[in-house]
């Protein structure tokens, strides 16, 4: 199957899309244009780097998350979405027991929902693409991937990068629906903050989480990096309770994955799973 692709720099990274080549090129161009406009608008609202963005105003105390109504630069729908993002951040903070905490990023701790917004934005954009006539597509948000198929398709193959060698792929993960998110310390240095110990996270070099929702998968992967060497119980619980499977690479003892990941990476069944 050949693919039609496009890419757009946004949110400090690059989003790229792929659809089966049989898809109508005009339909594809129009849907992607609209998705890019949505992503740029989300960046305007949530960027902590734009001094007048709502998130920047919350960070420096000019705006309370409880007073979103009546903000002239937010539409009704965007206010609803903003609350959705706040809810997502709260859910992630609870489920990760504070390892992912959008309200305690950096030192001194401040509000920064970036870690949740990228995956959430990809979910939004992917839904829009599906609504605009692209039921089968793959959306890559700077290394986090949202996949959809139209039903009968054979699904997608996502390569998981080897954090120690950027030219290599550690796994081929097959999925037809859902998200594959990877967090790590390689591309931006130690950029995941460990709010529990108030320091940059260390121990895990890379964590990949796959499950139905990319925003949650992304948050869980970031939390796993923050947990560092204590990530395994968290990821095991995540797999058993919520069906999000994971794969980690660490500095000392190598690689580890949840047993359920083998459904998506059948090759792993032939490999002895580290305990």
């Amino acid at each position: 199957m050949s693919l039609r692709r496009a890419a757009e720099p946004v949110m400090g990274t690059v989003f790229s899309v792929a659809v089966p080549e049989g898809c109508d090129p005009d339909l594809f161009a129009a849907a992607w244009y609209e998705a890019c406009a949505l992503l740029h608008r989300i960046d305007e609202v949530y960027s902590p780097f734009l001094p007048e963005s709502p998130v920047s105003r919350i960070r420096d105390g000019r705006l309370s998350p409880g007073d979103l109504d009546g903000q002239p630069d937010l539409s009704e729908a965007e206010i609803t979405e903003f609350r959705e993002v706040l809810g997502l951040c709260a859910q992630l903070r609870t489920e990760t027991r504070g390892a992912f905490d959008a309200w305690a990023v950096g030192d001194p701790p401040s509000f920064d929902p970036c870690g949740a917004v990228k995956g959430w934005a990809a979910e939004r954009a992917s839904r829009l693409l599906a609504d605009r006539g692209l039921p089968a597509h793959l959306l890559n948000a700077g290394g986090d991937v949202r996949l959809r198929t139209s039903g009968a398709g054979t699904g997608w193959v996502v390569g998981v990068e080897d954090p120690h060698r950027p030219d290599r792929i550690l796994l081929r993960l097959r999925r037809s629906e859902g998200g594959v998110a990877t967090s790590g310390t390689r591309q931006r240095g130690a950029h995941v903050w460990d709010p529990l110990h108030r320091r940059p996270a260390s121990g895990l070099v890379q964590a990949t989480v796959t499950g139905p929702d990319l925003a949650l998968a992304d948050g869980y992967a970031t939390a796993a990096i923050a947990f560092g060497t204590e990530a395994r119980p968290f990821l095991t619980r995540l797999a058993e309770r919520h069906g999000y499977e994971s794969f980690t690479v660490d500095e000392q003892t190598g690689v580890w994955w949840t047993p359920g990941l083998e459904e998506y990476v059948p090759e792993l069944r032939d490999v002895r799973r580290p305990g």
Binding site: L138, D144, G159, V160, I169, V180, T182, Q187, R188
Partner: peptide, 10 residues
């Protein structure tokens, strides 16, 4: 391989 998942790139 259709796509690559890895740590966020700039």
């Amino acid at each position: 391989i259709d796509s690559i998942s890895g740590a966020t790139f700039t």
